[in-house]
Design a protein around this nucleic acid. Structure first.
Lengths: 197, 197
DNA sequence: TGTACATCAGTGAACGCGCGTTCACTGATGTAC
DNA sequence: TGTACATCAGTGAACGCGCGTTCACTGATGTAC
């Protein structure tokens, strides 16, 4: 049953994609390899033909899923006229759709607290993804060259992650919606600093 | 080996306290009952004399540990002169000490993404703790009666949670420190809105 | 207040289960001539 | 280009292990008279 090189590579990507979804949906520690492999359409025995350990997959899957989402956000932002970029970025990150579909959303908010306990490779992927999101936010800001633009962008990214994470954890649907709406408003105000909001 | 009522109650509290620390240190899913019970100085067999399941303990431990931290924050804030409250609150929440000691810190940032997958009781505790933190932030703000004070306070609490969570996950110590410093600055500016920062 | 008995907190061994990992095997793919 | 052989992706069973949970047992505490 040996597979061709291309098919092997495709299988590997399929495992990484399935892992990215399962991790974001159920958490890393709570996701078993057997379930994950069957989500990828395989039996669990073949796992070690592609990865040397669960940790290696965790690092690859976290990196890939976070980067894919960041790519999509960057691409969407670039299509908007500059003055609407930030608002539209905030609207899509802080949306009910994003909150209610963690398996396809940003890994930083879906896995935040688990990433701090992950291996070094996964944490490096997290660090890079965080920086990339800061880059995007800076480029969405009305005055990207302001001296404190990057400092404010870091705070905005942290707030995005925290807001989606809390909006998911909170038990009260009204409060959850309100938190997302408030964050859209307050973070836009933070990005348009002097008196533009 | 039956114990007195008071000692039984004390034992129960001891288990809850140990669980609160272990969960914040290692995560909920990654913490086993046997290790947790031995951290409380007991053998694992006695667990079910105090709780009907791990889920019940999770809810109690999350509620208790988050509330204890929020109490401490509220108390400390009340002791500060009003004009320093917000700055001092931000300084202690967004400190390296807090980042580096999750086991005694705020459960919202230590468990954020796991709480969204927890049972209903734990999520209710999360919701209450979030609201209490918003209350504290509002009372620390220079103009607590402003119409949008509570909306900004919600964003600030979400940003605090996200910033500590990301500061822990990030692999680069300099960037981690910078994120905390930037958040202290930008969130203070958000709380003193017109031109006070 | 003292005695007799029921209760039950805590121990330590055991339960079935799913975990991450390993392995013998299969048969199509890749390589060498 | 065709043949012979080595490689290896994927299967399915099995490994030891720690998980949450249960249980028989102990003996100090609580209760009833």
């Amino acid at each position: 049953m040996r597979k061709s090189r291309e098919e092997t590579a495709r299988t590997r990507e399929r495992i990484i994609a399935a892992a990215g979804q399962e991790f974001r949906r159920n958490g890393i520690a709570a996701t078993g390899l057997a379930g994950l492999m069957s989500a990828a359409g395989l039996t669990h025995g073949g796992f070690y033909k592609h990865f040397s350990s669960k940790d290696e997959l965790v690092a690859e899957a976290c990196g890939a899923s976070i980067n894919r989402v960041v790519d999509a956000l960057a691409e969407r932002a670039a299509q908007e006229p500059p003055e609407q970029r930030l608002r539209s970025f905030l609207a899509s990150y802080l949306s009910a759709v994003h909150r209610d579909n963690p398996e396809n959303g940003c890994g930083l908010s879906a896995l935040g607290s688990e990433l701090s306990r992950a291996g070094d490779a996964a944490r490096s992927a997290t660090t890079q993804a965080f920086e990339r999101m800061v880059d995007i936010v800076v480029q969405c800001m009305p005055a990207p060259e302001a001296t404190d633009a990057r400092a404010r962008a870091r705070t905005i990214v942290a707030a995005l992650v925290g807001a989606v994470s809390m909006a998911r954890a909170i038990n009260d649907p009204e409060l959850s919606d309100r938190l997302l709406a408030d964050a859209r408003e307050s973070l836009a105000a933070m990005a348009y600093p002097p008196a533009a909001g």
